[in-house]
Amino acid sequence: MQIAQSKTSASPWRLLPLQQLIPWIVPAGLIFVWQVLSQLGLLSTRILPAPTAIVQAAIQLTLSGELIANVGISLYRALVGFLIGGSIGFGLGLLNGISPIAERFLDSTVQMIRNIPHLALIPLVILWFGIGDPARLFLVALGVFFPIYINTFHGIRSLDPNLLEMGEVYGLRPRELFWTIILPGALPSILVGLRYALGIMWVTLIVAETIAANSGIGYMAMNAREFMQTDVVVLSILMYALLGKLADSIVRVLEHWWLPWHPSQGI
């Protein structure tokens, strides 16, 4: 029975452990070479610490609670900034997408502000907010706002007007029209914006935490740099990479849940 099931599933060969291992061979080999070079002294620890040294640093900082505290505070900043910027962007995108009057009033203003790279505002933002969390949250929110806004707006505007007309013919009221046609139709585009926004969220946070902070992953890295602890610096970089990957996976799961009908889901 088990065998029969796996045979009928879409791609049974992907379930084989050997096939899953193939993509990992090259990275594992590289790490192995790196380790060997470090141990032979060919790679100075000032440039790159040995992989085992990084693992040791990770264990040590985890035990002391430092790692978790710093990752936690970075995650918190990312999330709060994202929620503020994302919800404003989403709301404004919906409003301007649905109401042409609102679009006339607001869209060109938003487009003008969009041309300013938000990281260029850092000196000004520090003047406004000082170097505390509000400045970082502001930058993250601003960075996240645009991709969410643009893609929500564009997703609604590029809806097939024929579908909306059809919805009206079939007696859908405005509220039903929104939930059955407008929002699901714009969702693929919104998720593209979400993925984009998450990338910008991390980049913004890295820059903001590196420039001025007394906690967070960026602070951990800059602090370690002063003491030449390259293992902690690399560990911090890896933490950013890991969190970035995590965010990306979350979007993938959302796409899987929300867009089961989409060709990207392999139906």
């Binding site: 097939d160 579908l163 919805g167 079939y170 859908l172 059955t180 699901p184 139709g185 989409h262």
Partner: peptide
Amino acid sequence: QDSRLLPWRRVLDNVSLG
């Protein structure tokens, strides 16, 4: 000529629209 069905709804949910 174009069916104007909603790709995000299954067949039955398209038919029972509204």
